[in-house]
Design a protein around this nucleic acid. Structure first.
Lengths: 345, 345
DNA sequence: CCAGGGACTGGAAGCGCTCCCGGTTTCTGG
DNA sequence: CCAGAAACCGGGAGCGCTTCCAGTCCCTGG
């Protein structure tokens, strides 16, 4: 277990101890062909005896591969970080990387600052591939990533363009289901608080909303945008009430905004869900805390991270995986209960 | 801007173009001494012309340094990730690394699984230093980190032992201030919901609680432990009420648990703060949402990340920085308002 | 019994950079 | 004007690994 020198044992030492050439030792360790069973065994023994672990840096240099992938997150307002999103994404990514011997590097990019750092990071050989998340309208990060030529997987589509590889949540479907639920409750004057207009996720959820209301032949122009924060949601709700005091339902594009909207509604004396039904999006823990608790669209955050990494691994290995759209699920709680019509009958 | 070959330009090409030796070019680029102004200029021009960026892998191999530090988080129950903690820590760490050209690697360690991966990661030359967070009782991670011999900074003290380098929040002070606030409100039957007994943060906050009550000559044995979750907090509150129906205040070691405790209190017909005053810990967004809003102890999460990285950088550079204890701050909201006695007087 | 093919083997040439070191040039002060 | 120091320069030996390739050896089928 102790290397002769104070440092880590090297391949040479392993080879010497095993009585073979360095080449043979290398082949044995990477279990390639052209190694006799005897030698392979000898090498394995030597490895164990010395506690040898390949020097990844040297491997990287020789193989012209890095042994790491980066997760790049565009960090506007730490918005993503106010939520538990981030941690779950990372948990998923980590799980997918578990048995690959690839390291995960993290790259937080402020849209305005630190571009040099980002550019450096993206230039090979700093990583073998990259996952990008949470892009805004025309985030400089997108251009930089494209220029880098690195295998790239998008977590959530960018506003413009359709990258070759991505994993996204079915935001449009989720938006539709949310609105459909409100329609099924018999609501007729349905509004929505959408996310920032320069994000694909907001646009998609809004499209889904419009889909559902069109099918139901309802007006779907009662839209206000906000920035995914609680305060933003509260303000947007204020504007909606001003535009249409008689609205009887609102589909909100995030739980945080929904929490804000709830507060505004209560302040204005509306009862939820009696007067106004509310459905959120995300299924954050916060949804249990609001009064009333929040009906919402659950999205598989952890899976998003997991699948992103899986797709990236495939791409890095030269495969052509197909893009993925992960399903959402309606979670019914108090703010927009199940339709009674279906209850017994 | 285009390298002659399809690949990235190398130092040799730069040197050739600048008409100097590779050594000189290297010195110029790392702006070391012993380069004439003229040559330095020529090299700089060549670098710009070729768009040269040093190959970090090769540098790493030659310098016997990696160019990356790791942030290791012990991942029990994704507890840390339910909160916005994680993102803020990372934002802080990233800020501190901003102009160092060091990459940040992330290591999520399940206490039971994935040890091999962790061990590999910790063995040089996979990183130049490591930051460890959120250790439990005797987390295997701690032993592994210690064995690795890598420069290590602890974010939050471990339960056992006192590492040479760490950054922590003044949890004991925070616990004390919380309790003092309740005392100053005239409360006499003060309970506490502490965190898991096998974490240093829980123990420290509890010690602070005991400090304050001892000084005030009040009983400080009304203690229940929970796991930092809302559900856990609710259950613990239940137990406390059973033990002491007449309690008039409770200091809770996290906002999440406090949110749960509030629910339990309301369910049992207690008015907050009239019957029972409540103070939390953390200052998470959730504290604005509860009914009533939550008085709490704010802790500088982002700074914790920032300082951790700063200390690590210093250690890696061979310095001997002193450990840091970051201050907390009482944030007074509705669940435990400011003492009236001091209001006008 | 022998040619030919396959499975092995180890030497050596990298991967792209750092850094030591002996040698040359230039500058300074006496 | 000269010795000695200081500044500068480039050759070359690594860092630890992979991988090409020319060479051995053994085994088969004709």
């Amino acid at each position: 277990m102790t290397s002769p020198t104070g440092r880590q044992p090297t391949l040479d030492e392993v080879a010497k101890l095993a009585g073979v050439s360095r080449s043979a030792a290398s082949r044995a360790i990477n279990n390639a062909a052209h190694v006799s069973a005897a030698n392979r065994l000898a090498v394995e023994r030597a490895v164990r005896e010395l506690g040898y672990v390949p020097n990844v840096t040297a491997q990287a240099l020789a193989r012209q591969k890095v042994g790491a992938v980066v997760l790049a997150v565009s960090d506007h307002n730490e918005e993503l970080f106010g939520d538990p999103f981030f941690g779950r994404i990372i948990a998923g990514v980590t799980a997918a990387l578990e048995d690959t011997d690839l390291d995960l590097k993290l790259l937080l990019c402020h849209p305005e600052r630190g571009h040099d750092r980002v550019r450096r990071m993206l230039r090979p050989p700093r990583a073998d591939g990259i996952m990008v998340m949470a892009l805004r309208g025309d985030d400089p990060l997108q251009r930089m990533v494209e220029k880098s030529g690195l295998p790239t997987v998008y977590g959530g589509l960018p506003l413009h363009g359709r990258p070759e590889w991505f994993v996204d949540v079915d935001n449009r479907g989720g938006g539709r289901v949310a609105a459909e639920h409100l329609v099924s409750l018999g609501r007729r004057r349905i509004a929505t608080i959408a996310g920032p207009a320069d994000t694909h996720v907001a646009v998609a959820r809004l499209d889904g909303f419009a889909d559902a209301l069109s099918v139901a032949q309802l007006d779907h122009t009662l839209v206000e945008h906000a920035d995914f924060t609680r305060e933003g949601g509260a303000a947007a709700m204020e504007r909606l009430l001003q535009r249409e005091p008689g609205l009887d339902a609102v589909s909100v594009a995030s739980d945080n905004m929904a929490a804000g909207a709830l507060q505004t509604l209560l302040q204005h004396g509306r009862r939820v869900p009696e007067d106004v039904a509310v459905v959120g999006f995300d299924d954050l823990p916060i949804g249990h805390l609001t009064q009333p608790s929040l009906t919402t669209i659950q999205q598989p955050i952890r899976s998003l991270g997991y699948e992103m990494a899986r797709v990236l691994l495939a791409v890095v290995d030269g495969e052509k995986p197909s893009p993925l759209l992960l399903p959402t699920r309606l979670v019914v709680r108090e703010s927009a209960p199940a339709p009674v019509s279906l209850a017994v009958s």
